[in-house]
Design a protein around this nucleic acid. Structure first.
Ligand SMILES: [Mn+2]
Ligand SMILES: [Mn+2]
Ligand SMILES: [Mn+2]
Ligand SMILES: [Mn+2]
Lengths: 258, 258
DNA sequence: CAAAAATGTTTGGCTGGACAAACAATTTTA
DNA sequence: TAAAATTGTTTGTCCAGCCAAACATTTTTG
């Protein structure tokens, strides 16, 4: 049976890197892992043995590395953690992208799942609440970079009133429920109804796509056979047939985001 | 000359612990450090040598440990980092105190000063912005723990309107500028004027106590010779004579915070 | 004050994670 | 296909941190 002990921060980074490489090139080479992590190849070989012993990767000397199901799952979680943290730093705290990247990759080893979920919800909140949105983000940005005069907050009230207007605009944007498949890249929506059934739908439900959830369409495949969406910080692939069984209310279209 | 390399996470924890012990008991004993950190005493001896080599602590075998000026400064920064992060987790994300504590003590080694300052401002923002405040925190808490129905945000607008009232109440609370020394524990205020001069005032300016800064009175010494305040996440000791030279507008009194 | 208890240090041993260099396999090139 | 270049592995070495046990010092107690 595989070694059950928790991953070390170093191991987490290796697994995350492998996950990303596999996602990109469907296979990970020792050299690539070493390059990405800025580490000697011999160190990689060592790390691979450890991850293999934990049943997270398929590893045979001199051949390519792939992920086991367990590894896939764990790796996905790690990549998500990284991304959610970076999003938080950039979107909410207006930190420089490179700094955000660096800090996120250190923080990711320090936040427990519990805290992660809160953070996901919080970033979502900032993204969605009518009182929040872009105007609000600007407020914080100003507040942060200029040292924070609270007189600025008088403007908050104005922005807040505007938000009722934006809510109205939203109602227009919505224009009644649609099928997820009808949306375009950049659209944000809320799920109103899901026709369950089938493994694809089950996977989506597990990924948090259910009544009330918010999601964003990231891209539609050129072949029009599936779309990529982001929900609860996860990137999910939704096959066309599934996207046609999910009803949503559009809350913000690509153009609303400037 | 002292070893100039950066502290390791472990060393940061040792220094932070020593800082806190010195603050409490004005001196740190090996045993106490070991107990607090859940570590064997022999490990502490080793760590002390490292910190001593970096010129951060005064260390003679078999005698008490104290901080050098450099160590004091660094230690204070670390304790602050820890605290700001914990505050963020608890106040903004509504994470359980123990979880917050644990995660903060891991995250603190991962955030750069830049990000820290953003976070301080952000927590301050959440604490101060009339659009924010307690009502808002409740919103997020609900949003986070209940999975986030955005319909809840209709209430946001109501809360927002209330915030103009709270702004009005604020004006009353203010009642014109006062001397910092006249405030009580729990009062929050904004600095309007500072009579500079003297080392105590200089230290406070460096600590961020200047026109426009917000601060909170934490306690007034029983002897009435100084008060402790919190500004920009720092805990500062303000001697009476200094507190009499700082003019402030009260923005929220202890009672306003329930 | 001497014995006992508590506290602190040294030494040796362990692990995880990194590197360099020598070696082995695989892929590319001529 | 043989040589050269690239990629991957093994081995030996180092360093940070931790512990346990033996030893040293200081403090408490009878
Ligand atoms: Mn990382
Ligand atoms: Mn990462
Ligand atoms: Mn820590
Ligand atoms: Mn800490």
């Amino acid at each position: 049976m595989p070694d059950q002990t928790a991953l070390s921060p170093s191991q987490e980074d290796y697994l995350e890197t492998i996950f990303l490489l596999v996602r990109e090139k469907s296979v990970a080479r020792v050299k690539d892992i070493a390059t990405r992590m800025g580490v000697h190849v011999s160190s990689v070989t060592g790390a691979l043995k450890g991850l293999s012993a934990k049943g997270l990767i398929n590893y045979d000397p001199y051949s390519y590395v792939t992920l086991t199901d367990d590894g896939e799952l764990l790796g996905k979680g790690l990549a998500r953690k990284h991304e959610v943290l970076r999003d938080f730093l950039i979107k909410v705290l207006s930190v420089e992208p490179e700094t955000a990247e660096r800090n996120a990759c250190h923080m990711e080893h320090a936040v427990e799942p519990d805290v992660m979920e809160r953070l996901v919800h919080f970033v979502e909140f900032v993204d969605r609440c009518p009182r929040a949105g872009f105007e609000w983000r600007k407020d914080i940005e100003d507040f942060c970079s200029r040292g924070g005069e609270p007189e600025d907050c008088a403007e908050c009230v104005a922005a807040c009133l505007k938000s009722t207007r934006s809510a109205a605009r939203k109602a227009v944007a919505g224009d009644g429920p649609k099928r997820l498949w009808e949306l375009e890249a950049g659209d944000k929506a809320r799920v109103t109804r899901v026709k369950t059934g089938g493994p694809a739908m089950d996977r989506l439900s597990e990924g948090g796509v259910e009544r009330g959830a918010t999601l964003e369409v990231e891209s539609v495949a050129p072949t029009e056979s599936f779309m990529m969406i982001k929900a609860r910080g996860y990137h999910l692939r939704v096959p066309r047939h599934a996207a046609e069984r999910i009803r949503v209310n559009v809350e913000r279209t690509r153009d609303d985001n400037r």
